[in-house]
Design a protein around this nucleic acid. Structure first.
Length: 636
RNA sequence: GCCAGCAUAGCUCAGAUGGUAGAGCAACUGAUUUGUAAUCAGUGGGUCGGGGGUUCGAUUCCCUCUGCUGGCUCCA
């Protein structure tokens, strides 16, 4: 009696034994390049390379350059780091250390937090461990044995993990003197780690709970070889050049000021122009799609925020002010005014859906540590709308919003991710309402064939929602558009409409934004285009560059013509060399540099230079205006 | 809010074991009239983020506040 082993999609091979290690099995199967294999899949489950199989199986080698292989190597690297840290800092307690995108981290509890200065020594120690090529050995033991083992070492976090697991047995991985509780699998030995770098330290709460211990986290990146690592680090450097805070300064778009306060943006002429153009585009899109534009006040009586539930649920994030013994809350959301407009008269089912749109300025007192450039601020403008509709209309309205999102993101060439969040534990409303709203959201995405993730239990307390996320230059994802169903506020504010039978009914409310926060969206937009905005939103579309003072007259004529044709143009008439003028316009990423020398002045036109360095052929004044109009119309 | 790092001229950055600072660009003045990523010369410019402490003396060391960056938590 023996085993039958096979590679995926290959003919089986008979083995004359009752069990065989996967390592031998792979050799038996004639697999090449063993040095790249870090683990195996047996019948589609991941195992250590050295594990034993004792029944017939399909074996699939996992190589270090595969997604699964690199993930395993990164995880193992975190174990190596933990070992290094334990050797260098006696008394340190280990907690968890998973692999993450591009690398890994490990959380430690030590008498003091780790500093960036500690990293070189840790890296050096890790390199020693890697050089020793210590094998990763797996063993299983009972939970009680494991608790005793870790308890003796004073590793109380590990004990807590095992206790919470509640499993009968747990597995332990040991390399050299270091053992860690771990499910695995791991690479065969530490020598398989070829390229890693510790990148940063950070604080992190034990189990992500801010009421529990603050641990010290060390992050690292790891790749299958040095070339990959270098190219990753280089890409990171490139991405930093797109940073919207940096570009915002270079392109003179906006600023922040210590003396004004954190999280408050001051828009400079060019930045405000960019913002204005985006807002203008959006306003028109809303009118086209049957929205009415409205505007509510910035401060509303605190009583009203109490009625809406914001005071109870959101007070810590709100700003308040008091006038004549009357407390007012500065709005963190725009819905209340919109509901009062709805309530201002009796509504019929014939009026629905009603869609109120506002470029609503809101203030939210975000915690200081979360502020970030334009992406997370305390004062921002939402392209906010509230749709009031009958329960039957809900599905179509959601589809309308998602289509709106798709169209707008398409204009800017954005890829985005959708995520639906379902009913949380703490929530209000009937099961029926939740069920209907959730399925409306899902059906809308299905009907539009959109891909989405499900985030169980992460909805708002008043209803489920779809979030749309965009990524910044450093690949961090930010929530932009959101569609939320709400049955609570219509209830609290007793909103109603008269149905076909003459009966009062409750409308459903959809909260939605398309760009989300205009500030955040522009931040991502800056990084998306690296500051080189397409013509239709470029704050300055064209700059006229003269060669000598003799050309001033023609330059001024051209400037006037461009402005009259509606273009955002300026002229650089300084007594400077053309090379300098080109350089400066280039650094400002202006789409069109219109060069005027004696030749152009004589012929009454320009030689356009694009910011990609290309020159276009001579154009007359009329021709360049037509050329720009065409490009602007195409929103390129 | 928590952990770590940072804060020097308008900008980008040097600098000193504690003895009050420097470059390039920008600005200003002058010369130059110039053809596709920096023409040359000269001049002015800083309470070294704010406050407090240690010290004969603090921009440098300590504390604290403010702001920024990277994480954590948060984002009804």
């Amino acid at each position: 009696m023996g085993l039958e082993i096979k590679l995926k999609d290959k003919a089986p091979v008979d083995v004359d034994a009752n069990s065989i290690s996967t390592l031998d099995a792979l050799k038996e199967l004639g697999v090449k390049g063993m040095e790249n294999i870090v683990a195996v899949k047996v019948d589609d489950r991941l195992y250590d390379l050295s594990c034993e199989i004792n029944s017939s199986a399909t074996i699939d080698p996992v190589r270090i350059n595969s997604a699964e292989g690199i993930d395993i190597m990164r995880h193992s690297t975190s174990h190596v780091m933990a070992m290094a840290v334990k050797e260098l800092f006696p008394g340190v307690k280990v907690t968890i250390g998973p692999s993450i995108e591009n690398g890994f981290y490990y959380d430690f509890d030590y008498e003091r937090p780790f500093k960036e200065d500690d990293l070189p020594a840790i890296e050096e120690k890790m390199n020693e461990i890697i050089k020793q090529d210590l094998p990763f050995a797996r063993e299983e033991l009972s939970s009680s044995e494991a608790i005793e083992l870790f308890g003796k070492q004073g590793e109380n976090y590990k004990v807590e993990i095992i206790e919470d697991l509640g499993a009968e047995n747990v597995s332990l991985y040991t390399q050299g003197s270091f053992s860690d509780l771990c499910r695995g699998p791991h690479i065969p030995s530490t020598g398989r780690i070829k390229a890693f770098k510790l990148t940063k330290v950070a604080g992190a709460y034990w189990r992500g709970d801010e009421k529990r211990a603050m641990l010290s986290r060390i992050y690292g990146v790891a790749f299958s070889d040095n070339k990959e690592l270098r190219s990753y680090l280089q890409k990171l450097e490139e991405a930093k050049k797109r940073d919207h805070v940096k570009l915002g300064k270079q392109l003179d778009l906006f600023s922040t000021h210590e003396e004004i306060g954190a999280g408050m943006i001051v828009w400079h002429p060019k930045g405000y122009m960019l913002r204005h153009l985006i807002e203008q585009y959006e306003i028109n899109e809303h009118f086209k799609r049957g929205y009415d534009m409205v505007k509510g006040p910035e401060i509303l009586k605190t009583d009203l925020w109490q009625k809406s539930g914001h005071f109870d649920n959101y007070r810590e994030n709100m700003y308040f002010t008091e006038i004549d013994n009357q407390s007012y809350g500065i709005k963190p959301m725009n819905c209340l005014s919109h509901m009062l407009i709805y309530k201002s008269k009796l509504r019929s089912y014939r009026d629905l859906p009603i869609r109120y749109f506002e470029l609503g300025l809101v203030h939210r007192h975000e915690r200081s540590g979360v502020l970030h450039g334009l992406s997370r601020v305390r004062e921002f403008t939402q392209d906010d709308a509230h749709i009031l509709c009958t329960p039957e209309q809900l599905g179509e309205e959601i589809k309308g919003v998602l289509t709106f999102v798709k169209d707008v993101m398409g204009i800017f060439n954005f890829e985005y991710e959708l995520e639906i969040s379902t009913r949380p534990e703490k929530s209000i409303g009937s099961d029926e309402d939740w069920e209907r709203a959730t399925s409306s959201l899902i059906n809308a995405m299905e009907d539009l064939s959109l891909k989405y993730d499900i985030n169980e239990g992460d909805g708002a307390f008043y209803g489920p929602k779809i979030d749309i996320k965009l990524r910044d230059a450093l690949d961090r994802s930010w929530q932009c558009a959101t569609v939320q169903c709400d049955f609570t506020l219509p209830d609290r504010f007793d909103l109603s409409f008269i149905d076909q039978e003459g009966q009062k009914q409750r409308p459903v409310m959809i909260h939605r934004v398309i760009l989300g926060s205009i500030e955040r969206f522009i931040g991502i937009l800056i990084e998306h285009y690296a500051g080189a905005f397409p013509l239709w939103i470029a704050p300055v579309q064209a700059r006229i560059l003269t060669v000598t003072e003799r050309n001033d007259e023609h330059a001024e004529y051209l400037l006037k013509s461009l402005k009259e044709a509606g273009f955002r143009a300026e002229a650089d008439l300084r007594n400077e060399k053309l090379g300098l003028k080109v350089r400066e316009a280039q650094l400002q990423k202006i789409p069109y540099m219109l060069v005027i020398g004696d030749r152009e002045a004589e012929q009454g036109g320009v030689t356009p230079r694009l910011r990609n360095g290309k020159n276009l052929a001579f154009m007359s004044t009329d021709e360049i205006i037509q050329h720009l109009k065409e490009e602007e119309r195409q929103r390129r």
